[in-house]
Design a protein around this nucleic acid. Structure first.
Lengths: 233, 233
DNA sequence: AATATACTCGAACACGCGTTCGGTGTCAAG
DNA sequence: CTTGACACCGAACGCGTGTTCGAGTATATT
């Protein structure tokens, strides 16, 4: 018992095929064969898939190159139905400024920023990130003022962070100190009874913070980007 | 009569094949068949192309999926040989290191780096560059050591430069001082009888250099990228 | 009830395509 | 000269793959 749709629309099966086409194309860099589509969608006969592909072509979602294996190309219209992930570039939302006297934006690690609200964003080539990092939960902050200068981070720089609440020794993290109302970027080391916050500039002395003092880790810095326009005198 | 190459390198034919693979992939969204490669490169036998593809796989330029039609995927390494056109990302070649005691790589502004030699490269999203900058002549240097620390640039940072030989006041430039054998990055100001080289760190004092002293400007810094792995103790 | 339309199936066909193998010619090392 | 590594050829094999056809089933239309 199949669900019938009007001839103009897309049936559930059509969408499954389109999704598979996109997924396969992203993974292998080539379209699947008709029989591979059969296996995926659960159709036993190649002629049915052929039939469906003709329909999808007729409705403008793809173009078929007759008589060549894997001869189909997806069109722009597919983007109306299936979200296509670009493998080269990821968009990292800039959640706000970071400065000594400003609270850091609150966020729950793990949640994804959807397209509901619009953010400023920086685009980062995937090749700049570690291979294991998929980048889906990264966020960015724009540095205001000179307070991070001992971390070799200047006014206007953009820091890209991965949301974490705990840090391993040696990682550079964004820290919020509620008592002194201070946000800062430092290399983080946990010692016996204190935290050692090491500036990135090796000529500068570390700061020690007792474990009694509240300290919130907001994220781990994975990248710093500085766009240089001209000297701000 | 064919030109022989050493087994480690890439012959002219290999490059032609790789270029065709990229071109075909960009146009059709799938790899060509072996016989299509035959027709393109002017080889009559499919076994030869098969032979060459095995070599290219062995050298890491592609991955073959056995027994499936058009079953090959290009790897990142291909980008060292063939320029891949992509709207979102530009590839900036890393010409070498920059350090206090090292000469800066020589280059003529305007020339394009071709595929003769292989470069390391960084990928930068176009959206990070000024709109007018097309990015075709940019190059990058990898900072070695702490000598640029007064410019807030650390060991391992990557600086992206635009090749210029003259600088306007307020631009950050890569400078080579032949007399003291020093390469450095500073904000550049031309004054009456001297140059003023201003560190990026505003708490540090500028350096003054007489106009009699030779000074070569190698490029204008347009971006600094810092990838943070972990603290190098 | 009869007809048309849409969808599915299985099978067969013919060509596309990757793979393998024996053989030829070239060049450098032993 | 002999040997072996390397590049190339042509042909054949066999499976992958797109295509076509006849038939069956469900739903809607007349």
């Amino acid at each position: 018992m199949m669900v019938r749709k009007r001839s103009e629309g897309l049936s559930l099966k059509h969408k499954r095929i389109l999704e598979f086409l996109v997924r396969y194309q992203e993974e292998y860099g080539r379209p699947p064969s008709i029989r591979e589509i059969c296996a995926e969608v659960g159709i036993t006969s190649t002629s049915v898939v052929n039939y469906d592909l003709d329909q999808l072509e007729q409705r403008g979602y793809l173009v078929r190159d007759g008589r060549v294996s894997r001869g189909l190309r997806l069109t722009e219209k597919v983007k109306n139905v299936v979200t296509i992930t670009n493998d080269n570039v990821i968009r990292v939302p800039i959640l706000g400024p970071i400065a000594a006297g400003l609270p850091l934006p609150d966020l729950q690690p793990g949640i994804r920023f959807d397209t509901e609200t619009e953010y400023e964003a920086v685009e980062i080539a995937r090749s700049l990130l570690p291979a294991k990092e998929n980048g889906s939960d990264l966020y960015a902050l724009e540095v205001k003022g000179d307070s991070m200068i001992d971390a070799m981070i200047n006014d206007g720089d953009i820091v890209v962070l991965k949301p974490v609440v705990e840090a391993r020794n040696g990682e550079m993290v964004a820290i919020w100190l509620p008592q002194t109302n201070e946000a800062t970027l430092k290399y983080f080391f946990k010692e016996k009874d204190r935290y050692r916050l090491q500036p990135a500039n090796p000529t500068m002395e570390p700061i020690y913070i007792s474990k009694d003092i509240p300290l919130e880790i907001k994220g781990k810095v994975v990248m710093v980007i500085r766009k240089i326009e001209s000297f701000a005198l």
